[in-house]
């Protein structure tokens, strides 16, 4: 800041930096450490890595947890299941979110503010409650099935809850605003005269969209996709509440490993593999979000 001394700067950056180093970066390292330990019965329920031994210290690290993850295909299927569900949710959010963002960007004045507000409002309401609300709708005796039966579209209630369909629906529903906002960000700064110019030069609406609008909003598409994909990959609440016995997602596996099996080292190993898999999209997300700041 203007006229601010060296100590001021150090405090300003140093305090939050130290906080994040202590409570975000250091914990990630501890996860790696524990993933190399063995599970025992006790408090804490894992073995120490460094063991005092004949006056010296010995490193007791094991890759057994990672071996377990790679050998038992439950984990592989859970990772792939998460990836499939999250990728599908991202694509659906993009398909639904793009027209919505487009409509908001094209509207004017108060209407535009109101629509934006309506997109953001779900951020402020409880995620848990919004997911829970779907249970009453999708239940075998739920509202949707009753409507379908009343309309004569189906004789018996359809299995809508506790399967892949409900998980996918929950993911799209919960993460849609995260897609719409960055898309709106890109679309609102798009100069409409570019599309008019394309039209004047003989481009049909579809050509104009594919040739001008879509490429110019790629940063928004990328940012929105990452904001949906990354958290959806590790989602726990949605597969737990809306999923069924055959729903395999890694966030839920990690939770069960930790809370039900009380196997902290395996849970840590699952987390390490997930973070490693997320490293590339995370770094990409940082680039896109940083660019958003620069603009």
């Amino acid at each position: 800041m203007t006229g601010m001394g060296w100590t001021g700067r150090l405090l300003l950056i140093g305090v939050p930096f130290l906080w994040l180093a202590l409570f975000f970066l250091l914990p990630l390292l501890i996860v790696v450490k524990i993933s190399l330990a063995q599970s025992t019965i006790g408090i804490p329920p894992y073995t120490p890595l460094l063991v005092d031994h004949d006056g010296g210290r010995e490193l007791h690290a094991t890759l057994a947890n990672f071996a377990l993850i790679t050998n038992d295909d439950l984990y592989l299927r859970a990772y792939l299941g998460s990836l499939g569900n999250a990728a599908m949710a991202t694509a659906l959010c993009l398909l639904i979110g793009y027209p919505v963002a487009y409509a908001i960007a094209r509207s004017q004045g108060v209407r535009r503010h109101l629509l934006l507000f309506l997109v953001m409002l779900p951020f402020w309401t409880s995620f848990l409650i919004r997911v829970y609300a779907w249970i009453a709708i999708l239940e075998p005796n739920g509202l949707l099935n009753q409507c379908l039966i009343a309309l004569g579209l189906t004789a018996a209630p359809l299995p809508l809850l506790n399967n892949e369909f409900s998980v996918e629906l929950g993911l799209v529903y919960s993460y849609l605003p995260f897609m719409i906002l960055p898309l709106y960000g890109s679309l609102s700064v798009l100069d409409p005269s570019l599309i008019e110019a394309a039209a004047d030069l003989g481009a049909r609406p579809l050509q104009g969209f594919l040739g001008v609008t879509l490429p110019l909003t790629l940063p928004g598409i990328a940012a929105g996709s990452l904001l949906v994909l990354i958290p959806a990959l590790g989602e726990f609440v949605i597969p737990d509440l809306l999923g069924g016995p055959d729903t395999l997602m890694i966030g839920k596996v990690l939770w069960d490993e930790f809370f039900n099996n009380r196997d902290w080292p395996v849970a840590a190993a699952v987390a390490v593999v997930l973070v490693a898999a997320l490293a590339v999209p995370l770094l990409a997300a940082q680039r896109f979000l940083e660019r958003g700041h620069a603009a």
Binding site: P16, F17, L20, A21, F23, F24, L25, L26, P27, L28, I30, V31, I34, L226, L227, I230, P231, L233, G234, E235, F236, G251, L254, W255, F258, W264, A267, A268, A271, L274, V275, L278, L282, L283, A285, Q286, L289, E290
Partner: peptide
């Protein structure tokens, strides 16, 4: 910058587990 932006998207199970272990 990374440590500021990553917690916005990193799955909650990871943030929770890592902080607990800390």
């Amino acid at each position: 910058g990374f440590a500021l932006l990553a917690p916005l998207v990193v799955p909650e199970v990871i943030l929770g587990l890592s902080l607990l272990l800390l």
